[in-house]
Computed example of a mutant assay.
Amino acid sequence: MRILILGGSGFVGRALADEALAAGHLVTVFNRGHRAPVPGTRLLVGDRLADGGLDALRSGTWDAVVDTWSAQADAVGAAAALLAGRAGHLTYVSSRSVYRWLAPGPLTEHAPLTAADDPGYGGDKLRAEHATAAFGGPVLLARAGLILGPYEDVGRLPWWLRRLRRGGPTLAPGPRELPLQYVDARDLARFILANTGLDDAVNVVSEPGHTTMGELLETANRVTGGHARLCWTDPQQIVAAGVQPWTDLPIWFPPGEVHDFMHRADVSRALAAGLRCRPVAETVADTWAWLTSLPGAAPQRADRPTVGLDPAVEETLLPA
């Protein structure tokens, strides 16, 4: 297929480009050109927020388009309208954040949505979903959950890997058997590429309990050399100390309604459409191999907060 990726050099976009090339597709990527493109792709340069920023897309036809944009919905709508009639299918990489916060679960694709005027990330994603109507053809709304894997530019799994590599007594947020739900960016990419005809909204994330907090951290410790001693700590003690789940301790939420909202979504529709998720050990090992190959610091998205726990705070929660 002739595939156009709006993005294509960052995290999810790069996974899409890699997987599409490996499958033998002809891949064009459109972005600002700030990062080196995936070798083998054709690069079109433009800033979709600037006047005339989409000019490079005014000619050409594609079998499928994938849009990875995560900010202003107007940019999604403008690209969708410009490509209408010149592409056979559009996928928008959306988010399960479009659902109303703490809507009762398990969250299916029919769960209540956030308010249309929600000023946050979920509102941006929902408005962008609505804006894809300008495409006028079949659209897959791929509502991803937590995304991990090589080239991650939010820093969640990379932070844990670097912390465990540092070693010593390490705060491990309990309970150890806490189930986690996420998707490797490469598995998300394969699902999208296999469904360039689907006209639907789909929760694209692993089954609940694909791994646990214990398996994730023990695997990461083993992959990084086994230098850490995991100190499993009661979640109430961690929260009482003012530690912020998800940001201070990436990936983790204590048991309760927030955890269930984030890690217990219904994914039967995705599984029926062919979603397959690799073992957590593969995601962890490949992410560590990528991190250790970098000449400098890992990339960090400017529109996301830096994650990770202050070592001084961690010290107060470790056993004497």
Rank of each mutant, 00 (worst) to 15 (best):
L126N: 04
R304G: 11
G7V: 03
T91H: 10
T283C: 14
A289G: 07
D124S: 14
T212D: 03
H130R: 15
V98P: 14
Y151P: 00
G7M: 02
P39R: 10
V65S: 00
N221K: 02
G155D: 06
R269F: 10
F11V: 07
V27Y: 00
L107Y: 03
T292E: 13
A78E: 07
R42N: 12
L230F: 06
H34V: 13
A144H: 01
G136L: 06
G13R: 02
W246H: 15
C231L: 02
R48I: 09
P175F: 15
G137N: 06
T219M: 10
L157I: 10
L90A: 01
V280T: 09
L4R: 02
I251D: 07
L157K: 08
G13M: 01
W288S: 06
T41C: 06
V284H: 02
Y121N: 01
T247W: 15
P255T: 15
A22Q: 15
A172C: 10
A79C: 09
V239Y: 13
V280G: 05
H34G: 15
G60R: 08
R35P: 00
H263S: 12
A241D: 04
T287V: 02
A272D: 11
G85T: 12
R96D: 09
N195I: 09
I238W: 02
Q237G: 13
G60N: 05
R162A: 07
W62Y: 09
S94C: 14
G77Q: 03
V76K: 00
G149Q: 04
A265R: 04
G149K: 03
Y92W: 13
A172R: 01
V12R: 01
H89Q: 07
F253K: 14
Q237Y: 11
G296V: 10
D124A: 15
S293P: 08
N195W: 11
V243S: 07
G53F: 09
D47L: 10
R35C: 07
P175L: 14
L294Q: 03
A133N: 14
T224P: 04
A22F: 08
P158R: 12
A273H: 15
A298D: 05
E152P: 00
L148I: 08
A133R: 15
